[in-house]
Amino acid sequence: MDLEKQTNEKPLPDIIAENLDILFVGFNPGLQSAAQRHHYAGKSNRFWRFLYESGLTPVQLKPQEDRKLLDYRYGSTNIVDRETRNAEEIRDEEYDIGREHLKQLILKYKPKIVCYVGIGVYKKFSNRKDVVTGLQQNSVVGGVRDYVCSSTSGLNSKPMEEQITCFKELLKLLKEI
């Protein structure tokens, strides 16, 4: 099936273009995001707040404004397309399919940085066990920098300042390249 057709049939369409500075990758659409068809739409999700407070965006966007990410040369997608209440509901076969599809997407669109919004997202994509936040030593797709931040879900118990710092470091990396 054609990559564009797959993208348009998703319950939550990708926000993507060629030569993005950053492509953000989550696990999969939550129920609210899929219902609203907007990325990071869950009431307790802090993605949009972290982008703003880190300086990655000059204003705090709302989920309904997610397509404005392209104005900043950012995009958003997920490793798995199916919406679920939580990531524990995702089956291994879905990760296998999603991993391959995401690799194709990255190869086609060639973002400078792929930021995985959740350590678990990167673990599933890379098949690596020991993953920490920040720039990864070896990228999965050559020529693209892999960067990992903690999940922006309100269920994440890491201190918010620590999470925002990860996004600030992402901005710093972007300015260096």
Results as ranks from 00 to 15, higher is better:
1 M>P: 12
1 M>R: 00
5 K>F: 13
8 N>Y: 09
8 N>G: 12
10 K>H: 13
11 P>F: 02
12 L>A: 10
12 L>D: 07
12 L>S: 04
13 P>S: 03
14 D>Y: 06
18 E>K: 05
20 L>E: 00
21 D>Q: 14
23 L>Y: 00
24 F>Y: 07
25 V>L: 02
27 F>H: 14
27 F>T: 13
29 P>T: 01
31 L>Y: 07
31 L>W: 09
32 Q>I: 12
32 Q>C: 14
34 A>H: 09
34 A>Y: 12
36 Q>C: 12
38 H>S: 13
39 H>Q: 00
41 A>M: 03
42 G>P: 04
44 S>N: 11
46 R>E: 03
46 R>L: 04
46 R>Q: 11
46 R>P: 02
47 F>I: 11
49 R>G: 00
50 F>Q: 07
51 L>A: 14
53 E>L: 08
56 L>V: 07
59 V>M: 00
59 V>L: 04
60 Q>V: 04
60 Q>T: 09
68 K>I: 00
69 L>C: 07
70 L>A: 02
70 L>M: 01
74 Y>R: 08
76 S>P: 10
76 S>Y: 13
78 N>V: 09
78 N>K: 06
80 V>S: 00
83 E>C: 11
88 E>A: 15
89 E>N: 03
90 I>W: 01
92 D>Y: 15
93 E>C: 12
93 E>A: 11
95 Y>N: 10
95 Y>I: 02
96 D>H: 12
96 D>V: 10
98 G>M: 02
98 G>E: 05
99 R>K: 03
103 K>W: 06
103 K>H: 10
104 Q>C: 10
110 K>G: 11
110 K>L: 06
110 K>M: 12
111 P>D: 05
111 P>Y: 04
111 P>I: 08
112 K>Q: 04
114 V>H: 03
115 C>Y: 09
115 C>T: 03
116 Y>W: 01
117 V>G: 08
118 G>K: 03
119 I>S: 13
120 G>L: 08
120 G>S: 11
122 Y>V: 01
122 Y>F: 11
124 K>C: 04
124 K>M: 02
124 K>Q: 12
127 N>G: 14
129 K>N: 06
131 V>M: 07
131 V>W: 06
134 G>T: 06
134 G>M: 02
136 Q>G: 02
137 Q>K: 14
137 Q>R: 05
138 N>I: 00
138 N>H: 12
140 V>F: 02
141 V>G: 07
142 G>S: 14
143 G>Q: 07
144 V>F: 06
145 R>G: 09
146 D>S: 11
147 Y>P: 04
150 S>F: 10
154 G>V: 00
154 G>F: 04
154 G>P: 05
154 G>T: 02
157 S>G: 05
157 S>E: 08
161 E>A: 15
163 Q>P: 09
164 I>G: 14
164 I>C: 08
164 I>N: 04
165 T>F: 11
166 C>S: 14
167 F>S: 09
167 F>K: 07
168 K>C: 03
170 L>V: 03
171 L>Q: 13
172 K>P: 12
173 L>E: 01
174 L>C: 07
175 K>F: 01
175 K>G: 14
176 E>Q: 11
177 I>V: 15
